[in-house]
């Protein structure tokens, strides 16, 4: 085991393989992947389209299951969880940031951020407090009652980040979080993620194909044809 793994790993993958059947042929997206992510890391996974980086993120998020291998995230062996247990596990441990923000159009910024809290036992007042804190943290305290269509792309993504952190998850997973943003908005989001990592100690795994985005992370790993390129 490497030194990094000794420092309380949040994620550890062992011999993870993911294959799909497409048109009768088996396609390997991830091949025999093993690595660990220590707590408090801001990791960027890079790779071209089709390299399997989103699949890898989905496997860590527990929204996709590997064909074989073992995935332990936040101390839980994911392959042992039933679907319902996995959903509850996700709610507690994973904050997910989507490339296309994926806000619910009929809900306001505050309501979108409140969504994950609907799965907790917090009181209404506690939920409102959490939502306010999260939106303040992303600099949108004055946009609480705006609907997604009334926000810019950058603002929408910041609401997306607020939604990912509002329930104080163990880890934030971001799938091309700046992929749809202009340079300036992208920088804002990356700064925000870096701050969350630095100031709140959040473990962040970000998938990107943008080298400038990846540079903001503490650690970069390249995924090529389903194989992770080991650090030099």
């Amino acid at each position: 085991m490497s030194d990094a793994a000794m420092v309380d790993p949040v994620v550890s993958l062992h011999n993870v393989t993911k294959t799909y059947i497409r048109g009768g042929t088996e396609v390997s997206v991830i091949r025999d992947l093993s690595f660990v992510i220590p707590a408090g890391t801001f990791l960027a996974i890079m790779g071209p389209s089709g390299s399997g980086k989103s699949t890898l993120l989905n496997v860590m998020a527990g929204i996709d299951r590997p064909t074989s291998g073992s995935v332990v995230v936040a101390g839980t062996r994911l392959e042992q969880l039933s679907e319902g247990e996995m959903a509850r596990w996700r709610a507690r441990h994973i904050g997910y940031v989507f490339q296309t923000y994926n806000l619910i159009p009929v809900l306001t910024a505050a309501e979108n951020v409140e969504l994950p809290l609907a799965l907790t036992h917090l009181t209404r007042r506690e939920r409102a407090d959490h939502v306010k804190t999260a939106l303040r943290l992303v600099g949108l305290a004055d946009r609480m009652d705006h609907y997604p269509r009334q926000l810019s792309g950058g603002q929408e993504q910041r609401v997306g980040v607020a939604r990912a952190i509002v329930s104080d998850p163990t880890m934030i997973l971001a799938d091309e979080p700046t992929g749809n943003l202009d340079r300036e908005s992208a920088d804002d989001i990356l700064t925000l993620l870096a701050r969350l990592n630095r100031e709140l100690g959040k473990t962040i795994v970000m998938v990107t194909h943008d080298p400038r985005a990846a540079e903001r992370a503490q650690m970069i790993r390249h995924l090529e044809k389903g194989l992770l390129e080991m650090p030099p």
Binding site: E83, R88, R90, A91, R92, N102, L115, L119
Partner: peptide, 15 residues
């Protein structure tokens, strides 16, 4: 559909 996927990712169950 995407919305459903999003809600499920956030931890909402099929139920």
């Amino acid at each position: 559909t995407t919305e459903i996927g999003t809600l499920r990712t956030l931890g909402f169950t099929r139920s």
